[in-house]
């Protein structure tokens, strides 16, 4: 049955103020059932407070063959990292 259903990517917000994070995918006939499948599959141990589902077919992905062009040039640009600043202890999630 599930092979007839489209795939949905699941995003979970772990708590208020945090961004939704990709956690996996589910098969489902439509978005409503996809949300319920996502709830039953990915939040059964109190992992989240909010859910998004997105049709996997709607996601545009970079081509692995372009990896060298896209990502290698960043390799030696250490000056782009904010490692030269002190982050106050009270600032979380950076």
């Amino acid at each position: 049955m599930s092979k007839d259903w489209p795939l949905w990517e699941v995003f979970v917000r772990s708590k208020g103020g945090m961004a939704h994070r990709h956690v996996g995918s589910v098969h489902a006939p439509d978005s409503e059932i996809a949300l319920r499948h996502a709830r039953d599959t990915y939040t059964r141990r109190m992992e989240g407070v909010s859910l998004w589902v997105v049709p996997s077919a709607q996601i545009s992905a970079s081509d692995p063959e372009d990896d060298a062009t896209l990502f290698d040039p960043a390799a030696d640009k250490t000056y782009r990292h904010p490692t030269f600043y002190d982050i106050p202890e009270d600032v979380k999630h950076i």
């Binding site: 049955m1 599930s2 319920r36 499948h37 039953d40 599959t41 059964r44």
Partner: peptide, 12 residues
């Protein structure tokens, strides 16, 4: 169950 997702729904 018909799919792994439904399997989890029913077990839950």
């Amino acid at each position: 169950a018909p799919s792994v997702e439904v399997d989890l729904s029913l077990a839950n």
